[in-house]
Nucleic acid binder design. Structure first.
Lengths: 82, 82
DNA sequence: ATATAATATACTTTTTATCGTATATAGTAA
DNA sequence: TTACTATATACGATAAAAAGTATATTATAT
């Protein structure tokens, strides 16, 4: 899987929606796994709310994902090994 | 720079404090750059508050860092190239 | 078209983040 | 010690997230 930078709530929401669908989850499934309301998942995915960081971490964990901090200066060089 | 996973507010705070010090910033410097109070930086670094995701993104941006989503299943295999 | 499932929206209440501001505490010189 | 700097804490006010719950809207069937 790729690392995906998220710089605003819209990007975060899109990413979460994609990952949820990839796993065949409904919003209600993800909500239960993360112990939040289905409505919150909807709001998150649509960028309606700027969720708390801990909430995002819980939702991502339910999707088997992690939140990470990376440097912008990171040389995005991933050499293929021949 | 390494990618650093953050799974709770404590880890996030530690990471932010480290990065701030690496750059020789005082809390007040970082606060101004991110348009928040010095007190908020203190609270963030000490894990006193679970900041909003957008706030974290602003603070990280002021540190030249990005928030990213990564898969837990990612094979953490970064081969050396000889 | 009707029924059903999934998602989005709405409303009130509770909880929490953030602010402004001020001060207390801790750290660092001189 | 004294002065100064940096960080932590406090408190009231405001704004926003999240809850519970319900319903509206949209999508997907049959």
């Amino acid at each position: 899987m790729m690392k995906t930078i998220v710089r605003n709530r819209k990007e975060l929401g899109e990413k979460i929606r994609n990952m949820r669908r990839n796993k065949g989850f409904r919003q209600i499934d993800l909500a239960r796994k993360a112990s939040v309301r289905q409505a919150l998942i909807s709001e998150l995915e649509n960028g309606v709310t700027s969720a708390r960081c801990e909430t995002v971490i819980r939702v991502l964990a339910a999707l088997d994902m992690d939140l990470a901090i990376i440097s912008r200066r990171k040389a995005e060089f991933n050499p293929m090994v021949y």
